[in-house]
């Protein structure tokens, strides 16, 4: 069973509907006692990094998620939810993240080094390039296009956490992971067949991992 963490900032409906279509059992909750009964968690999110971290703290979810990740249990962050898995964001000067993955979210500058202006947010369908084609999340996934909407982008020195990336005037980490802490910058629930396959793969990781400690 997948638990979707409801902390008041995601489009929970789309994610839920996608899981429904895949026949993956799930529930939504903000209650950590309830969420603890799940076999895998999804951390959705759209909007401000700062607000999201505050809400996770207020609802007592931050410590719960930290313990969850430390126990090696499956966690998938989507969009802002993925960025929260990293050290922090330059939003509001500096906001501390969950710190499971090394890296930092910074705003797209909107202008290249040679002075060409480009649009922010990075919105639309962009192509994935696989860095770790053998990764469990990418099983039977085609190296095609997925749907992005974001104004901040993760910068990381640690290539090991990059599962797939994309390109929007700079490198865009698109699928990230270390152990069972996983994330997608794009919206798999809005990314047609490729996105659905990735969610299905997460469902399989959850089913295989079960509710057991590593």
């Amino acid at each position: 069973m997948i638990g979707i963490i409801d902390y008041g900032m995601g489009n929970l409906h789309s994610v839920s509907k996608a899981l429904e279509r895949l026949g993956l059992p799930y529930f939504l909750s903000e209650d950590t006692d309830e969420l603890a009964k799940a076999d895998g968690l999804i951390l959705p999110g759209v909007g401000s990094f700062h607000d999201a971290m505050n809400l996770l703290k207020e609802k007592g979810q931050e410590d719960f998620i930290k313990k969850w990740a430390a126990d090696g249990r499956p966690l998938l962050g989507i969009c802002l939810g993925m960025q929260l898995l990293f050290d922090g964001s330059e939003e509001n000067k500096h906001t501390q993240g969950l710190g499971f993955l090394p890296g930092y979210a910074k705003h797209f500058p909107g202008i290249t080094e040679d002075g060409t202006a480009y649009k922010v947010p990075h919105m639309g369908w962009n192509k994935l390039t696989f860095k770790q084609p053998q990764h469990d999340l990418l099983k039977d996934v085609e190296e095609g296009h997925v749907y992005f909407v974001h104004s901040y982008v993760i910068q990381t020195e640690d290539e090991d956490v990059l599962v797939a990336d994309s390109d929007y005037y700079e490198n865009v980490p698109a699928v990230v992971g270390r152990g069972r802490v996983l994330g997608t910058q794009f919206h798999p629930e809005k990314s047609s067949t490729i996105g659905m396959k990735i969610l299905e793969n997460f469902g399989r990781i959850v089913a295989e991992g079960g509710n057991t400690y590593e």
Partner: peptide, 28 residues
Amino acid sequence: VAGTLAIPFTVGGGINTLDDMRTILRAG
């Protein structure tokens, strides 16, 4: 539509208040 469609969609027409927006976005 939200229950079947796996690509993004926008809804316009007749949205006049924050409540209208919330209703449409909540619906998916």
